[in-house]
Design a protein around this nucleic acid. Structure first.
Lengths: 148, 148
DNA sequence: AGCTAACAGTTGAATTTGTAACTAACAAGG
DNA sequence: CCTTGTTAGTTACAAATTCAACTGTTAGCT
């Protein structure tokens, strides 16, 4: 029968999923109040906006796959963004199941605004670390996120 | 007028709050299916269970402060855990506003089980990194989480 | 063509969460 | 004692999320 001979120090505050969650919530808080207050957006809406802003025209399915968001969440975010005239929806002529999404001028303006906010916010968050530490952090997080 | 002279490389996939969120969700997924499937628990419920298991008897308010969980979420988690006979609730005699929570035998058993699962899961997650990398990751996450 | 399966996206009902107002208990000043 | 204010915890209602079933469309097989 094995006993806790090792790792007796394991605590909740060291459990990686818990820590990641706390860090994610704390770091997202301030940015959330900005996109929520300025454009009345929810998190998923912001993500869809950024995907279209950065990667350009694509379908809802592609966004869902890239960002790992369930299709119903994407669908509802798209509806709200379209209602606010931030994105256009265009059926693919050859295969009418697909619907291509793209930013309108207003959507692009909102994207640029929030993109700049995000850039500055990210810079501020990482300013407490060295460049090497930050780079390592990002690479580790990417591995944790993409590791399926 | 400033242009994007610097940091043209800023992408969504590098935005720290986004990355943290993706890593948190991905890393929490597997553990979630375990506590959900095995005990029908929600995230807040296992957190409350762990807090009591690790730190011992305390009030709902203390748990909320330590874990940064809103009191209504704690309240509902406590109700469910009490309904499943995982915790006891005892009014403080001197000040009846306070209610002290503690694990029952069944609650302690569930805690020990999930604690062991978490320990192994954490070990598996971090096994892809060196000990130094892992230590640095944890310390950075703590700073991001606690940095208000 | 006609049938079946797969796919993109939507919708509705049940859960879960967030916000605000609430109850019950105590403290402190008059 | 009796306000007034504060605190621990709960509840009600609205908003958001999840899950499953749904529509409309295409592909592939016969």
């Amino acid at each position: 029968m094995m006993r806790d001979t090792c790792d007796e120090t394991f605590e909740l505050a060291d459990f990686l999923p818990y820590l990641l969650n706390q860090a994610a919530e704390a770091s997202g808080q301030e940015f959330q109040t900005i996109y929520k207050g300025r454009y009345g957006m929810l998190r998923t809406e912001w993500r869809v906006l950024f995907h279209l802003g950065i990667y350009g025209r694509m379908t809802a399915k592609e966004i869902g796959e890239r960002a790992v968001i369930h299709k119903t969440k994407v669908s509802r975010a798209v509806q709200k963004l379209a209602a606010r005239r931030f994105i256009t929806r265009e059926r693919h002529a050859a295969d009418r199941r697909f619907e291509y999404l793209d930013l309108t001028t207003a959507g692009r303006a909102a994207y640029r605004d929030l993109h700049e906010v995000a850039r500055q916010y990210d810079a501020r968050l990482t300013s407490q670390f060295s460049a090497e530490e930050t780079a390592l952090l990002r690479s580790m997080l990417k591995r944790l996120a993409g590791g399926r």
